[in-house]
């Protein structure tokens, strides 16, 4: 464990909690892409199946359980409790255009052609593009609630910090996982446009609205 990975995980946890609280407190999931949240639930489900097969640390197990519970709670709030506030007309990204290539990639490019390994690879590839429906929805509505931009900021920051974690682990532990690094780079690059808007607008107290 290193400071980049720890702050990355805490940033990820912060994003997940911010979103859950936003929906719960405002009793509304306006502006939130349910499709992205379903993809995140799928990412955690396929990646954390090893919860039952291997124990790494208490921290690892506790965080995985929290992530999975929050992901499904968020999906439930969007499609169940507060579905009346779900903006389906703007959440129209064709997720099959993500799932099919990700499945093909996971089967073709992985570390080992074993079920658990392919599921892990699928979850890594899927996570790198899972935010696209949310970003697409914001581009369609032309704006985002400020709390939603904070959610996106911490979510983007988490994988950016993981990039530094991988640099750290490469130099100090000789650890290197090309699949995770490449997918993490793609994931972080997808946030660059948002990061720019967040820093130049939201941090200056303005509302995030497009076109910039």
């Amino acid at each position: 464990m290193n400071i980049f990975r720890l702050t990355g995980d805490l940033s990820h946890l912060a994003a997940i909690i911010i979103l859950l609280l936003k929906i719960w407190k405002t009793r509304s999931c306006a502006g939130i892409s349910g499709k992205s949240q379903i993809l995140f639930a799928l990412v955690f489900t396929t990646r954390y199946l090893d919860l039952f097969s291997s124990f790494i640390s208490l921290y690892n197990t506790v965080m995985k359980v929290i992530y999975i519970m929050c992901a499904y709670a968020t999906v439930y709030l969007i499609y169940g409790k507060f579905k009346a506030t779900y903006d389906g007309n703007h959440d129209t990204f064709r997720v099959e255009f993500l799932l099919i290539p990700v499945v093909l990639l996971a089967v073709l490019i992985n570390h080992a052609f074993a079920p658990m390994e392919i599921l892990w690879t699928f979850s890594i590839y899927l996570e790198s593009v899972a935010i696209l429906p949310q970003l697409f929805m914001i581009s369609k509505t032309g704006e985002a609630e400020t709390i939603t931009t904070h959610y996106l900021f911490f979510l983007g920051l988490y994988r950016t910090l993981y990039l530094f974690n991988w640099i750290w682990r490469f130099y100090f532990e000789g650890f290197f996982d090309l699949i995770a690094v490449v997918a993490g780079l793609v994931q972080t690059i997808l946030y660059c446009d948002f990061f720019y808007l967040y820093i130049t607008k939201v941090l200056k107290g303005k509302k995030l609205s497009l076109p910039a």
Binding site: H12, S54, M63, W120, Y162, F175, A180
Partner: peptide, 10 residues
């Protein structure tokens, strides 16, 4: 290859 070890990251 070392990445074949179990995935210890979240």
């Amino acid at each position: 290859a070392d990445e074949l070890q179990e995935h210890d990251e979240l």
